[in-house]
């Protein structure tokens, strides 16, 4: 039996277990990932099952954790490290950008680093400050990194397995507001590979492009639109780098209209890059300029105000309404 209802945290835990069983070189480490099982319980029971050589707590130092992973990868391991929260990963930023991302290139491919950096990511959980950042643009802007953001529990399992097997470093962004949502996961059915987007909903009138925590929001918006007689499609990127331009552009060409939805602040963002690419490559198919629905360009708000900041189905539909429908 492989299909079962799992929370996203359980799906990720299963992926780690299966990867550690399949490959002895897979090791898991970070802060509180040992006996506690991680603050979100993603590493629950791994130390017990695999021993403390395979899943262990480190001193509390993110740069050291990332640096240790680089060295262990140089010596035959496939480390999966946990950054406890998105904004707590910043001390590791130098190790990630200057070494993890660049090592293969600076050594002409002689040293490849199969490291997965798991990042509990983004908001919507009423977290205190520094616990809800959408930090994907920093990583996506860094050549050498592969950046993955699952939106479903099946993808959480499948993409994490793929990330661990990936030859290059992967930043794995886990939408923490979905850690405890339950969905059917069939671990025996492979998911599409990293780099391939998936059309979550076909639609004739306009295309919503989203990833990670924004995919369910986009789907909810499409549901609402359907009740109003507008047929919206939803593309789930699944990986930000590589960006599956082909799938996105094909959908947008079909519908002629696009809204990019992302929780991160919009200025100089992944959403901006996607909108620019659609504009450059689909100009003659577009009935209206591409719009973006993103977080405001502010530091992540306090919990009582976060609902105003996060893209909502209503805000997405307002953007869809602004796609110059009257002029066609």
């Amino acid at each position: 039996m492989t299909a079962t209802k799992l929370t996203m945290a359980q799906a990720l835990n299963t992926a780690l277990r299966d990867a550690m069983t399949a490959d002895e070189s897979v090791v898991v480490f970070g802060e509180d990932v040992g006996p506690l099982g991680g603050v979100f319980r993603v590493t629950d029971g791994l130390t017990e099952t695999f021993g403390e050589q395979r899943c262990f707590d480190t001193p509390l130092a993110e740069s050291g954790i990332a640096g240790l992973a680089i060295g262990m990868a140089m010596n035959g391991f496939r480390p999966v490290i946990e950054m406890q929260f998105d904004a707590f990963a910043y001390p590791a930023f130098e190790q990630i950008t200057s070494h993890l991302a660049k090592m293969a290139n600076r050594t002409r491919g002689r040293v490849r680093l199969p490291v997965v950096v798991r990042v509990p990511y983004a908001g919507g959980i009423g977290g205190v400050e520094h616990h809800c950042d959408s930090s994907e643009a920093y990583y996506a802007h860094t050549p050498g990194l592969t950046v993955v953001a699952p939106a479903t529990n099946a993808d959480a399992y499948g993409l994490l397995r793929a990330a661990i097997e990936h030859p290059d470093p992967v930043i794995f962004l886990e939408p923490k507001r979905h850690y405890f949502t339950r969905e059917e996961v069939d671990t025996a059915t492979p998911v599409p590979p990293i780099g391939q987007a998936v059309v979550r909903r076909e639609g004739r009138d306009a295309t919503l492009v989203a990833y990670g925590p924004s995919v369910p929001v986009a789907l909810a918006a499409a549901e609402l639109a359907a009740t109003e007689g507008r047929d919206l499609g939803v593309v789930d990127l699944r990986s930000i780098v590589p960006f599956d331009e082909e799938t996105v552009l094909a959908q947008v060409r079909r519908t002629g209209r696009a809204v990019v939805v992302a929780e991160a602040q919009g200025f100089a963002s992944v959403a901006s890059e996607i909108a620019a690419r659609i504009g450059e490559r689909c100009f003659h198919h577009l009935e209206a300029p591409v719009r973006r629905v993103t977080g405001f360009d502010i530091p992540y708000p306090p919990p009582k105000l976060e609902r105003h900041h996060l893209p909502s189905p209503d805000r997405i539909l307002d953007a869809v309404d602004a796609l110059q429908w009257d002029e066609t």
Partner: peptide, 13 residues
């Protein structure tokens, strides 16, 4: 920045 890598190679060994 190379020092944590050195520790990683050593720990792996």
């Amino acid at each position: 920045t190379q020092l944590p890598h050195a520790v990683g190679v050593a720990h792996a060994a």
